[in-house]
Simulated assay, not measured.
Amino acid sequence: MQKSEDVTFGGSGLDRAGELRGNIPELARAMQAPGTRAVALWRGKPLVAGDAELCLARLPLAHPAFADAARPPILLGREEGNAVFAHDISGWDPDGQDLSKLGAFVDDSEQAHPAMPGGHRFAELRRIMTRLGARDAELAATAKAIHGWHATHGFCAKCGAASEMHQAGWQRICPACGAHHFPRTDPVVIMLVTHGNRALLGRSPGWPEGMYSCLAGFVDSGESIEAAVRRETLEEAGITVGPVRYLASQPWPFPSSLMIGCHAVALDDTIRLDPNELEDALWVTREAVAEAFAGRARHFLPARKGAIAHFLLRNWLADRLD
């Protein structure tokens, strides 16, 4: 698929500076360099600035707001020769600001830290992801995913002792038993299942009214991508799938998935829904999907812009899957 790296969160060509992670002297020099910057997170929300042209904020490592950091800065990579880190200041309590929508499917609240420059605020990444440039989106996704891993994996999975951060944030080591732990990424297949001129779409409970998306599911241990596509489609909708081909992937830091986009051809079209998996599933024609993307569908909303499901459906409509 020629446009596979145009998907949100991928394709910016970030230099991840892997050789610096274990080089303590060079890492120390990078942290003290005048051009070094850090992006900030608060409860998973990146710090952004601007309105019409939204950008991921980059601050000096010595910025006073980082006094609330939950852990040492994590190296994200290098931009134009300068190191970029990520700080998590989730310990900050935004007194008097709207926190009622935190964790909701749609969180349009924003929080402003008093020590940050004017116009800087924390915003939900899913809501703003399409307004960020490719580099900013990749940095934000990486920062959210890696800090999310540290927040939930502070103890050794082998012996239960508290582990310690190493390799500039890209490894945890248990001082009790010596076990090494690495950031978790969960492979998820997401499939554009077609049958002639129609695509199979489903919806999960709790989604906004009318929203439908491509079917998806986690890859089992010992399972290939193709097998996962066939199993998940059969389990969720009762549809048997024949040929499967890979199209594109997308890092999805909600919290730590790698979405593996595939095209699958259905061998039948009789939906046998598993209500434990989906609230509903239906076949939708190209024309109906095009109407929905144009905002003219009355009872059908496509996957949100920025998600790989939206990307796959748009390329299907444009006949660009090859």
Rank of each mutant, 00 (worst) to 15 (best):
G96F: 07
A57I: 02
A123G: 01
A70T: 14
G103V: 06
Q111D: 05
L75V: 05
W42S: 03
H63K: 02
D68C: 12
K45G: 07
A62Y: 02
D108R: 14
G91A: 14
T130C: 10
G103W: 11
G118P: 07
A86C: 15
A70N: 10
L56I: 05
L76W: 07
A83L: 04
D88R: 09
R127V: 15
A83G: 03
R121C: 12
E80C: 11
L61E: 02
G91K: 15
L61A: 06
S109N: 13
D68L: 11
H113V: 02
D88V: 05
A70H: 08
L59E: 04
N82G: 03
S100G: 11
P46W: 05
E124T: 11
H120C: 13
D88A: 06
R126G: 15
F122W: 04
E124V: 09
A62R: 10
L99R: 15
V48M: 02
R126A: 13
S109C: 13
K101C: 13
R43N: 14
D95V: 15
V84T: 03
L41Y: 03
T130I: 10
G118C: 06
P64R: 10
D108Y: 08
W92S: 04
D93A: 14
G96P: 05
P72I: 01
A115Y: 03
M116N: 01
E124S: 12
E124Y: 14
L41D: 01
P94H: 12
H63F: 07
P72T: 01
S109W: 09
E79S: 09
I74F: 12
S109T: 15
F66A: 01
R131V: 00
E79L: 14
R127F: 13
G119C: 06
A115Q: 15
F122N: 02
G103P: 08
S109Y: 09
R131G: 12
H113Y: 04
R126P: 08
G77A: 05
R58M: 10
K101R: 15
G44T: 08
P46T: 04
R43M: 10
